[in-house]
Amino acid sequence: MSTPSSSVQEARVVFGRRLREIRKDSGLSARALAVLAGWHESKCSRLENGSRTPSFEDIRAYTRHCGAAQLAEDLIATARGIEGMYVEWRRIERSGLRRVQESVIPIWERTLRYRIYSSWLVPGPLQTEAYIRALLSSIRDRRRLVDDVDEAVLVRVAKQHIVYEGNHRFSVILEEAALKYRIGGSETMSGQLRHLLSVSTLPSVSLGIIPLDADRSALWPVEGFFLFDDAQANVELVSAHLTVVQPHEIALYAETFAMLAGMAVYGPAAHALISKATDALE
């Protein structure tokens, strides 16, 4: 898969090509457009080859002088999406963890098919309140954030209604190791594993677990990711949050998920692995 920075740059290049098409359709040269906009001629080239990110005012000026002002707002929305593809945690979390939890509610509510892979954590829709609190408290302390953990926990728990209501479907693949990492201590982890057994029986949930002794010759553990229908993939990195919207990249994540799903065990075999991890805690 491409790196986060290359994904963002590719999107910028595609956006620049769109700007170039608009200019050429208008009959303007890059020099003529620069003169009309009051820019240095090189600015047009940098905008069109993706080496410079246009401001929203740049986009409005560009389209206005090209006689395509009606395209400005759509282009601004696209540019805003590109800039949101790779966002550092310190920027996302500067107002606290509650706002982060609230920011994803719209896509959570509208997504019907979730495909979730995690190699080290039980994912959000299947977490207990105690497990959530342990995770968010650790993030707060590690990143030196304002303390709004109580409010953030309430928001995340409330979001889980989609597991029980509506037409949402969750296909979740966990590495067996995720059952063994003691998030919040033994008691919290034991409660989380018992909850995982319970929710795995819901009609809306398909839970697969890849055993530690599975043959990984074809594909080893990769970064955890959420696939929201076929519209978007979210990946949590150490320093930043990555949003993937390029169709060919989403297809790669979907293909990877299918391969991982083929390595997993389900039903009684998955329940046995959960019970084994629970017994080890006790």
Rank of each mutant, 00 (worst) to 15 (best):
S198D: 14
P268N: 11
K159R: 15
L36R: 15
E93M: 07
R90H: 13
A261R: 14
A32F: 02
K24I: 08
F15Y: 14
G262R: 06
L126H: 02
R60D: 10
H161S: 15
A69L: 12
R182Q: 11
M85E: 11
E48W: 05
P203F: 07
S171K: 12
I250V: 15
S204H: 11
R110G: 02
V8G: 01
V153K: 06
I107S: 08
V149G: 05
E109W: 07
A214H: 14
T256W: 01
D58Y: 08
A134N: 01
L260Y: 02
E109L: 12
P203I: 09
D213C: 07
S239T: 13
D230V: 00
V172Q: 05
L237D: 09
I116L: 13
R64W: 06
L281A: 07
M263K: 15
S239P: 01
S95T: 05
E129C: 04
V100A: 13
S7W: 00
L97M: 14
A130W: 00
E83K: 14
A269T: 11
L260G: 01
L154W: 02
T78L: 12
A37E: 04
S190L: 13
D74Q: 14
D213P: 01
S186Y: 05
L196M: 08
A270P: 06
I183E: 01
R64G: 03
A72N: 05
R99Y: 02
R20Y: 06
A158H: 10
D150I: 09
I173C: 08
S55M: 09
L136G: 02
G27S: 11
G262T: 03
T78F: 04
A218Y: 04
W108I: 08
R156W: 09
A272W: 02
A134D: 04
Y253V: 01
A277K: 06
G16V: 07
I210N: 05
R17C: 04
L193G: 05
R46S: 05
A231E: 14
A254H: 07
V157K: 11
L135P: 00
A280I: 11
F56Q: 13
A130H: 03
S6L: 13
N49S: 13
V146C: 07
G166P: 11
I274H: 04
E109R: 15
V8S: 07
R194M: 05
G27P: 09
G38L: 13
H271G: 15
V155S: 14
F226P: 00
L179W: 03
W108F: 10
D230M: 00
S204A: 15
G96Y: 04
E73I: 03
R52D: 10
R20G: 02
I162V: 15
I22V: 15
L75G: 00
L252K: 12
A32S: 11
A11L: 08
E187Q: 10
V155R: 06
A233F: 00
S2G: 04
W89H: 15
S190Q: 10
W39L: 08
H65T: 06
V153P: 10
I209H: 02
S45C: 08
I76R: 06
I105H: 09
